[in-house]
Amino acid sequence: MKIHDIFSPDKLRKAANDPLPGQIQEPPEPIEINDDQEWEVERILDSRLYRRKLQYQVKWEGFDEDRTWYPASNFIGSPHRLRAFHVDYPNRPGPPKRLKD
Score class of each variant (00 low, 15 high):
Y50N: 13
P30A: 07
D5K: 08
D64M: 04
S8D: 12
F63S: 08
P21I: 02
D5H: 12
Y70M: 09
E65M: 15
K14L: 06
W69Y: 11
I24W: 10
S78I: 02
P90I: 09
L20E: 06
D18T: 14
M1K: 02
L12G: 14
L12H: 15
D64W: 09
D18Y: 10
Q25E: 01
R52W: 02
L99M: 08
G62R: 00
I76W: 12
S78K: 07
P9E: 02
Q37M: 03
I44Q: 02
P9W: 00
H80C: 06
P19A: 05
P71I: 07
Q23Y: 14
L45H: 03
I76K: 15
D64R: 10
I3G: 09
S73F: 06
L99K: 02
Y70L: 13
W69A: 12
N34D: 15
I33F: 07
R67Y: 14
R52G: 08
M1S: 02
P95A: 06
R51G: 12
N34L: 13
H86P: 03
P28D: 08
S73A: 13
S78T: 12
K14H: 08
K11I: 11
Y50F: 13
E38R: 15
P79I: 01
K53E: 14
D18P: 07
L45Y: 03
K97L: 15
E29P: 03
R92I: 03
P71L: 00
E32W: 11
R51Q: 13
P28L: 11
E32M: 15
W39V: 07
D88E: 15
N91M: 12
L54C: 04
R43L: 11
R51W: 06
K2R: 12
G94E: 01
W60R: 12
N91V: 13
R48I: 02
Q55R: 08
Q25L: 01
D88K: 12
G77H: 14
R83K: 14
R98V: 10
S78P: 04
S47H: 00
K97E: 15
E26V: 01
A15N: 01
N34W: 05
R98W: 14
F75E: 00
K97F: 15
T68C: 05
Q23R: 13
E26G: 03
P30Q: 07
Y89G: 05
H86K: 06
R13N: 14
Q37R: 11
K11A: 14
P21D: 04
P9M: 03
K53Y: 08
Y70A: 10
D66W: 10
P27D: 01
R51I: 03
R51K: 14
P79H: 09
R81P: 09
P90Q: 04
E38I: 14
R52D: 04
R52H: 05
E26Y: 06
A72V: 05
A72L: 03
M1P: 00
S47A: 07
G77P: 05
R48E: 10
S78A: 15
P30F: 08
P9D: 10
H86E: 03
K53F: 09
Y89L: 09
T68M: 12
V58E: 08
S8H: 11
D64K: 03
V41Y: 08
I31G: 04
Q25G: 01
R48C: 13
R98E: 15
D35C: 07
P96K: 05
E32Y: 09
Y50A: 13
E65K: 14
E65C: 13
S47C: 00
F7R: 09
L49V: 08
K14C: 01
K53P: 06
R51Y: 05
K14S: 11
